[in-house]
């Protein structure tokens, strides 16, 4: 038990030190926007289909469950508010982060791990190119940019899904659905979601590049690293989500 605690503490420290190294490499990496744009495409655009599909279904489920719950109090007209707040503040950032870890995070980890296994990172160092600047930092920044954008897409599609079920299927009035939403949802609610997905973007991208960079350079090692990326990203996303939610409610 004690050993396991020490090991996880050591891992936490090593991730934190790695973050410092990544941040130091971010300055020079920012000077090369094309590399970053490529990674935004890799992490973001390629995750778009799965994000949109999941957003639609999460929104539709919210429509069903929200209607069922609100109808018990005779306040079906608040369905638009309920679904939107749920998506903006919780489901949008969290589900996007979980999907990101599974879709983009694993891809990042295995790509970097295989680059290490095939000596590509060492070769770069031998060519006097710092892999932290050329490979790691652009991927980290790319993931960081992609996450809030994906969450925004998820939210928009999700609200559309809730409207599809609530208004078209269950007969909530179109006008009240949108006008109640417009009245009740504040800019601060939107900001809360953005802050959350930025935080998740840091965590998921960081863990993905960390695990890849430190993967044992064998087929088995890269496989294990990929698994660790998904597990650690998902757990950390949910833990940090709780902490941020508590902080926002207190503020």
């Amino acid at each position: 038990m004690n050993g396991a605690f020490a090991a996880s503490l050591a891992r936490f420290g090593s991730v934190a030190l790695f973050l410092l190294r990544v941040l130091r490499a971010c300055g020079p990496a920012l000077a090369r926007p094309r590399l970053i744009a490529h990674q935004v495409y890799n992490c973001g655009a390629r995750s778009l289909i799965i994000i949109m599909l999941c957003g639609l279904f999460v929104g539709m489920v919210l429509g069903l469950q929200g209607y069922d719950l609100l109808a018990r109090f005779g306040s079906e007209s608040a369905l638009g508010v309920a679904a939107t707040l749920g998506l903006l503040k919780e489901l949008g950032p969290v589900v996007t982060a979980l999907l990101f870890a599974g879709r983009a995070g694993t891809a990042l980890t295995s790509e970097i791990g295989l680059m290490r296994a095939t000596d590509q990172l060492t070769a770069m160092q031998m060519m006097a190119v710092d892999p932290m600047r050329r490979v790691i930092a652009p991927r980290f920044i790319g993931g960081l940019i992609a996450m809030p954008l994906l969450a925004a897409v998820f939210n928009v599609i999700g609200i559309f899904g809730a409207q599809l079920v609530g208004v078209t299927l269950l007969g909530v009035d179109q006008g009240t659905f949108w006008s109640q939403m417009q009245n009740a949802v504040e800019l601060s609610d939107v900001n809360e979601g953005i802050v959350k997905s930025l935080a998740f973007g840091v965590i998921c991208s960081l863990l993905a590049v960390y695990e890849g960079y430190n993967a044992v350079p064998t087929a088995e090692g890269v496989g294990l690293a990929t698994t660790r990326t998904v597990v650690a990203s998902s757990v950390m996303t949910l833990v940090i989500d709780y902490m941020l939610t508590a902080a926002f409610l207190k503020a």
Binding site: L114, M115, D119, Q120, A123, M126
Partner: peptide
Amino acid sequence: LFQNGALLT
């Protein structure tokens, strides 16, 4: 020159 070439894939 690396043993396996180490080309960027």
